[in-house]
């Protein structure tokens, strides 16, 4: 059985695994990541700006990715953990965020008459979900549930690499493979049969910044956007981590020097 996504993020992991194992402490690290069952092809490692110790989200790419989400994915996929105000972190201005929110009607209420009512969304509102609940989502999608995408990059082995691979992995089934009714062939989906039809097609969106909307480009951008959506704290986290480890290195040196001094007359 092939290990789903085991080679993914290999570079990223190998660095830290070496460090951690070097410290001799991560006894169980090798055994830890569990493997999803089902056959799948190894996920190719895609280059993203946010990889590595100092990587940050490419804002322009993430903004384009948001556009892809808004115009394509949002028809079926909710992102209920995100609010419109969060888009400011992607470099959108307050006015732009207000304008984006205002194009969406959200339910509010009850009003003084006890009725629920629709109003334009405000920055503080959550992203509007396309379906009121899971049953409605399934009913509209032949029984398949389009998952919420808020943390999808953390919820799939392989993360953004997997999302990029999945979105570019559609093809005709190889000879000998019969698809079940309403299913589509995807090289990278576990089991290869996915209910979602190929969502991205050449030129499907018109990017404001003039970037050519190839499937590859859109997949890269939307994977960047989803990675940000899942881990909006990543940049602050890495920055703090680098500073903390520098601090600990100095403190460790000092502590060790003091230890040597104190112990010199015992040895």
């Amino acid at each position: 059985m092939s290990v789903f996504g085991n080679t993914v993020r290999a570079t990223f992991r190998a660095t830290f695994r070496a460090l951690a194992l070097g410290a001799g402490l991560l006894l169980g690290a090798g055994a830890a990541p569990a493997l999803a069952a089902g056959e799948a092809t190894a996920i190719p490692d895609h280059r993203f700006s946010f990889e590595g110790l100092f990587g940050t989200y490419d804002r322009a790419s993430a903004q384009r990715g948001f556009q892809v989400y808004k115009e394509v994915c949002a028809a079926c996929h909710a992102m209920k953990q995100l609010s419109y105000r969060n888009l400011r972190e992607l470099g959108l201005s307050d006015a732009e965020v207000r304008a984006i929110a205002a194009t969406v009607e959200v339910q509010d209420g009850p009003n003084d008459e006890g009725q629920m009512f629709e109003r334009p969304a405000r920055p503080s509102d959550r992203f509007r979900s396309p379906f009121p609940n899971e049953n409605a989502a399934r009913a509209a999608n032949n029984g398949a549930y389009p998952p919420d995408l808020s943390v999808i990059a953390k919820a799939r082995e392989g993360g953004a690499d997997y999302l990029h691979a999945l979105l570019t992995g559609y093809s005709d089934p190889p000879p000998g493979v019969t698809l079940m009714d309403g299913m589509n062939y995807n090289r990278y989906f576990p089991g290869h049969q996915i209910a979602m039809a190929q969502p991205l097609n050449e030129g499907q969106v018109t990017f404001h910044d003039g970037t050519n909307a190839t499937v590859e480009q859109m997949a890269h951008d939307v994977a960047t956007f989803l990675a940000w959506a899942a881990e909006p704290e990543m940049e602050e986290r890495k920055r703090m981590g680098v500073r903390l480890i520098m601090f600990l290195t100095i403190l460790g040196g000092l502590a060790y020097a003091v230890k040597r001094r104190i112990w010199q007359d015992v040895h």
Partner: peptide
């Protein structure tokens, strides 16, 4: 703390499970 910090700040979900 250095090992702890590497986990928390650079690979916080490494030992967890995506599911």
């Amino acid at each position: 703390l250095v090992v702890f910090a590497i986990l928390v700040f650079f690979m916080p979900n490494y030992l967890g499970h995506p599911d």
